[in-house]
Amino acid sequence: MGTYVLRRLLQMIPVFFGATFLIFYLVLGMPGDPLAVMCGERGCDPSTANALRAQFHIGEPLYVQYFEYMKGILTLDFGETFSRRPVLDVMGDAFPITIRLATLAFIIEIFIGVPLGLVAGLRRGKFFDSSILLGTLLIISIPIFVIGFLMQYFLGLKLGWFRPTVSGEAPWNELLLPAIVLGTVSLAYIMRLTRTSVVENIHADYVRTAVAKGLPHRRVVTVHLLRNSLIPVVTYLGADIGALMGGAIVTERIFNIKGVGGTLYQAINRGEAPTIVSIVVILVIVYLVFNLLVDLLYAVLDPRIRYA
């Protein structure tokens, strides 16, 4: 178990530096003058340009720029925006909102996706199963912004069940509709994944053993079938957290939420490199941390890994 965790941690290190360097390269290392790209057609005023030059060590080799920048990040110095606000402050405003949004979406996914997927898998080939298969396919096929508009239009504007846009504070209740929108696609994936996994396991010998042991149906399904079927679902959930926070860029735009996605979108439009790189680096860290958690959970769920 210890060596397993250690191995996963060690594997994370090159992935972390590689991924962040990749982002750094895309934002700053492309051919041409990075300042021209960052400042766009309008150009930056000289003081901003100087600040950027200093912050990113422009003119020095890319790897020096990268290490200087990462050094700053490790001391929580994420640089400043064009309007001279520390990026840390900007992120401090944006992240709590997106974390609330992603958490809600995550909860919706698990508590609706897993049970429906389980029932579909148990009733393979029946009407319910076919409806779930077709319905999820439909959800996956409709781009999230279309789903967002439809829900905003019907549930928000027509029926008035939800506020169509979210206020600046973004309290939990106002984030419910955006969270449903954000979670729908992953929800569909989780249903399909759970269903497939249940279908694969339902004829497993150990399930037959559980029945032959005279266990009640409910126990056979939950203790034996579901527990084993959840292993691939958990893997998906780990990768999904990162996708949820990254995918929030669309949802936040539709509902006018001032979260990470909204901030990032603005930063990209302005070419504000410190904000872009910082946010993406944080999201990479979020992804890696959750993947590590999933690996741990995976080991808890499957002893064959723990003792491998």
């Binding site: 010998d205 150990y206 037959r208 053993t209 527990r227 084993n228 499957d302």
Partner: peptide, 11 residues
Amino acid sequence: FQDALSSLNPV
């Protein structure tokens, strides 16, 4: 059953 490895729950 015949195959004890697959007939026992691995987890």
